[in-house]
Design a protein around this nucleic acid. Sequence first.
DNA 1: AGCCTTTGACCAGCG
DNA 2: TCGCTGGTCAAAGGC
Length: 465
Amino acid sequence: MGGFDDHVAMMGDWMPPNPSPRAFFSAAWGDDISSRSILESPAENKTDDKDWMRIGGASDQLTKSNPFADQKMSSRGGLLERMAARAGFNAPRLNTESIRPADLLLDPDVRSPYLTIPPGLSPTSLLESPVFLANSLVQPSPTTGKIPFAPGSSSRSSTLITESSDKSRNFFEDISSSSFAFKPIAESSPSLFFGAASKQSFPSIEVSVQPENTLHCQSAEPAKVQSQSAEHSPPPDDQQDEDADQRGGGDTMAGGGAPSDDGYNWRKYGQKQVKGSEYPRSYYKCTHPNCPVKKKVERSHEGHITEIIYKGAHNHPKPPPNRRSVIGSSNLTTEMQLDTADQAGTQIGADGDPMWTIMQKETAGGSHDWRNGNLEVGGEFNGPNSLQGQIGAHFESGDAVDGCSTFTNEEDEDDRGTHGSESLGYDGEGDESDSKRRFVMHLSIFYKIKPGLFSVLLQKKERRD
DNA sequence: AGCCTTTGACCAGCG
DNA sequence: TCGCTGGTCAAAGGC
């Protein structure tokens, strides 16, 4: 239960910054929306962390570029973490903040419940979701595990620059006319990885996108959450994550850094308050002998992980799962992170060039700073390695489309890894109508928009095309 | 006993 | 050269 409630609460926090559906649609339909794509934002990526790859949103970046960042910053943590912790993936946050037009802010209507977009949910993700995308897209992704990163993959630069893929489109205009108030968004913070990934062969960047909804769902389905749900009562979400984190149980692994997080064992070797970051940063090393992988984790005071950055690649297989099973939900997280780490590191590891991968970042307040959010639209699918593909994969696993249940079940996927090769429901191209229906459903679910409305919009769109 | 966390100190890079 | 900052080391303590 708490999950849902939290979710709501969270929503409230970051509501303002809701991701723009427009972007979402744009991506989906590829309309030509003149407006700049959400992704457009220049590379802010301060991710210049040379060797490190960031996966999570970095609050800083967003923050800096985004006027609304402040708000979020104040409230970061929470949801994303939970998600990450439970699901094992991070939900990239939409940059909508930057995107969100003044209108939205001003216009109360915009906040209509129907328009709310779940935090952490990236429309792109949805789009990328296996359900919508051909499996082919997802499959090749390293994330999916089908394609190992090429060791040599260049990417040394950890910086992910976001390039918008120019997918902006106008679908929303239509929508706007209909009933939505979505408007073009001005800027979008660059998506760290996605852009970069797409442009560069960013091997390890892996972002798992998961809609909060999923989380909610999990809450809804205690059975799957198992121990976690059982464990906590209070703020189930937080608590559990935190607990887990603390001892490494949580997938939040970041924090706990313990073993189960991503499947690897980590030892914390330092913690420091980083300037510019409101939360302390913890440094972890993979405990496996000779394994160069490190990770930096920022977590809120509550223990929520706001960001995880992996560096290097594991040169060894995952240790046998221990708590993971117990932890249950964390599996996903684990997987994801794992994959992330692996992949990210993998490349690195090969040449010894460390790369940091930003795994996730979340705003405690509920505002999720997924700089990644940009991901949402990342643009086109760039290939197997593309983040999107990865995302899709993750999303897949976490895909809430059909219901939360999907997500929870993910536990089983542990072994399969983050991969998302299996498509949740996408039947293939042939089933266009079907896919559309699903799409609508997705939208309605994630965006909480009435399905009927989406259908109408969709039809309208089609006619136009 | 082993492993991990905590935490202050140290070191290196940068302006 | 100095100060700042991020990253790492290593001793102490806990589980």
